[in-house]
Amino acid sequence: MYIKKAYSENFDFVKYLPIPIVFLGLIVLNYAAIALLNIDVEELLREEIAKKGANRVFIETLLPMAVLLGVLLLWVKYVQKQSITSLTTAREEVDWKRIWFSFGLWGGITALLIGIAYVTAPENFVLNFKPIPFAILAVTAILMVPLQTSFEEYFFRGYLMQGIGVATRSRLIPLIITSVLFGVMHIANPEVGKIGYILLLYYIGTGFLLGIMTLMDDGIELALGFHAANNLISALLVTSDWTAFQTDSVLKDMSEPSAGFDILVPLLILYPILLFIFSRKYGWSGWKEKLTGRIRLTED
Results as ranks from 00 to 15, higher is better:
2 Y>H: 06
4 K>R: 13
6 A>V: 06
7 Y>D: 08
10 N>L: 07
11 F>K: 05
12 D>T: 09
14 V>H: 04
19 I>G: 00
24 L>G: 01
25 G>S: 10
26 L>D: 05
26 L>T: 14
28 V>C: 02
30 N>P: 01
33 A>H: 12
33 A>R: 15
34 I>V: 15
35 A>H: 06
40 D>C: 07
40 D>A: 06
40 D>I: 11
44 L>S: 11
49 I>C: 04
53 G>I: 14
56 R>H: 10
56 R>S: 09
62 L>Y: 05
63 L>P: 04
64 P>G: 06
69 L>K: 05
69 L>M: 14
73 L>G: 02
75 W>M: 05
75 W>L: 02
76 V>W: 02
76 V>A: 04
78 Y>S: 06
79 V>D: 04
82 Q>M: 11
83 S>L: 07
85 T>K: 14
89 T>A: 04
93 E>I: 10
99 I>G: 01
100 W>R: 05
103 F>I: 14
104 G>V: 15
105 L>H: 02
106 W>Y: 15
106 W>I: 15
106 W>T: 14
112 L>A: 15
117 A>N: 14
120 T>Y: 01
120 T>E: 06
121 A>M: 10
122 P>E: 11
123 E>N: 12
126 V>A: 13
129 F>I: 12
130 K>Y: 03
131 P>F: 14
136 I>L: 12
136 I>D: 00
138 A>N: 06
142 I>W: 00
142 I>H: 00
145 V>D: 01
146 P>D: 12
147 L>Y: 08
153 E>C: 09
154 Y>V: 07
155 F>S: 06
155 F>I: 09
158 G>M: 09
159 Y>R: 10
159 Y>P: 00
160 L>I: 12
161 M>C: 08
161 M>E: 10
162 Q>I: 15
163 G>M: 12
164 I>L: 13
166 V>S: 03
169 R>N: 15
170 S>L: 10
171 R>W: 05
174 P>I: 13
176 I>R: 02
178 T>E: 03
179 S>F: 12
184 V>Q: 02
185 M>L: 14
186 H>M: 06
188 A>F: 08
188 A>G: 01
191 E>C: 03
192 V>N: 04
196 G>D: 09
198 I>C: 01
199 L>N: 09
201 L>C: 06
202 Y>R: 13
203 Y>G: 05
205 G>V: 12
206 T>I: 09
206 T>H: 00
208 F>N: 03
212 I>L: 06
212 I>T: 08
213 M>N: 04
215 L>S: 05
225 G>A: 13
226 F>W: 12
226 F>P: 00
230 N>F: 10
230 N>R: 06
231 N>E: 01
234 S>V: 14
235 A>L: 04
235 A>I: 08
238 V>E: 01
243 T>H: 11
246 Q>N: 05
247 T>K: 06
249 S>N: 02
250 V>L: 14
251 L>V: 09
252 K>I: 15
255 S>E: 07
256 E>C: 01
256 E>W: 04
258 S>H: 11
261 F>G: 00
265 V>Y: 03
269 I>L: 13
269 I>Y: 01
272 P>D: 09
272 P>G: 09
273 I>M: 11
275 L>Q: 05
277 I>Y: 02
280 R>N: 08
281 K>I: 15
281 K>D: 01
283 G>K: 14
290 K>S: 07
293 G>V: 10
297 L>Y: 05
300 D>C: 00
